[in-house]
């Protein structure tokens, strides 16, 4: 699949994990930035353009589910992938009901994550396209009236 470069925000309180993942995704030609908490993530999203967020579920301070809720509220077009070391069915389903794109468990294969990122980005760009189309139609309709 031909995918253009897109922008990813990683949120994880484990510095070592975060650092490695940022490095490895950058090698795969993505624009990647890493932050250590949900609060930082929300701040970053207000000033930078991000396509997909990879969010750790368990973090000190604002937990992943709350961060997801706020991201979806304030930036509905941003896709969120949950990534966790604590397998929990309940949290997985809660996250997906809140609109997470998917729920992955550590340890995960870096390529698996990359595929998920690409799929999430594709979903997002299809949605953008649709919205753009709708706007055009509405504008055309308005102009015609």
């Amino acid at each position: 699949m031909q995918v253009d470069a897109f922008s990813v925000l990683l949120v994880d309180d484990e510095p070592e994990f975060l650092e490695t993942l940022v490095k490895r995704l950058k090698k795969r030609k993505l624009t990647v930035h890493g932050v250590k908490s949900g609060e930082e993530a929300l701040q970053w999203l207000t000033k930078e353009s991000v396509d997909v967020v990879v969010l750790d579920v368990k973090m000190p301070g604002m937990d992943g589910i709350e961060a997801l809720r706020q991201i979806k509220q304030n930036h509905p077009l941003v896709e969120v992938i949950m990534l966790t070391g604590h397998a929990s069915m309940e949290v997985a389903i809660e996250g997906m009901e809140l609109g997470a794109f998917d729920y992955l468990m550590k340890p995960m294969d870096i390529d698996e994550l990359l595929y998920k990122l690409q799929d999430a980005y594709q979903k997002q760009s299809l949605r953008r396209q649709k919205i753009k189309k709708m706007k055009e139609v509405v504008e055309a309709g308005d102009a015609g009236n």
Binding site: S88, M89, M105
Partner: peptide, 20 residues
Amino acid sequence: MAFIKAACTAISANVFHIVK
């Protein structure tokens, strides 16, 4: 148990995905 929990979680998440 880690295997069981992870498998159940992965299957749930994927089945939810399917339904959605």
